[in-house]
Design a protein around this nucleic acid. Sequence first.
DNA 1: GCACGTTACTGTGTCACACACAGTATCGTC
DNA 2: GACGATACTGTGTGTGACACAGTAACGTGC
Lengths: 110, 110
Amino acid sequence: MSTPDEEILAGHLQELRRGTVVLACLATLQEPGYGYALLETLGRAGLSVEANTLYPLLRRLERQGLLDAEWNTEESRPRKFYRTSAQGGVVLDALLRDWESLHSAVRRLG
Amino acid sequence: MSTPDEEILAGHLQELRRGTVVLACLATLQEPGYGYALLETLGRAGLSVEANTLYPLLRRLERQGLLDAEWNTEESRPRKFYRTSAQGGVVLDALLRDWESLHSAVRRLG
DNA sequence: GCACGTTACTGTGTCACACACAGTATCGTC
DNA sequence: GACGATACTGTGTGTGACACAGTAACGTGC
């Protein structure tokens, strides 16, 4: 009765993570990196993301000019390297500020 | 150049808030309340939500069994009162735990 | 030297949610 | 009794998460 539907709970947890993933990408990619490695970094940091979610996200952030991207074709295995752009840095700062203010708001309400 | 597109920034800020609104509703509605008042409460707490977003959200949470709802028709102006259900409380706790762990993760990365 | 799992991506479709826009109705007040 | 504020409901539309389905190169074992 008081045990909520797992799907509903999972959905809301997902929603909660959503915006955070963008923040984490912009923060992590201040040091250049590629998708697959980022997946593992985020997973270790406690921010599991599906590959099918992360790759389109990276392309979107690139399209928006928040990430710079470049193919590394020198090494044997081709990898697309991303790095947070100047604009991305500005957005990151704004998101971090907002995050802290949300955190305070939640603390007050919870 | 390094000034990001306002729309893009606003979009990401929006995404960051998204899941938080559910959390805030469940937390606030441990004391019964109605939509319009909740709008103002959240706004004052630094969590501005559009009416067009909040009302459907409340109905969704009701449908999911996380909120109990009841029309108050005794007073002159009819108002739909919502209150966090037992299931809603369980979800709220899970979301709060997740929120804290996300906060730590962001701190580590940022 | 080639079969097979892992690494590292791209592309397409579906569904849910945020928000815009458009109503409805009641209350206070001037 | 007209008008703005209060307090909702209902119906689009667009975007993003995720599922599913590829593509391709690398390493290892046999």
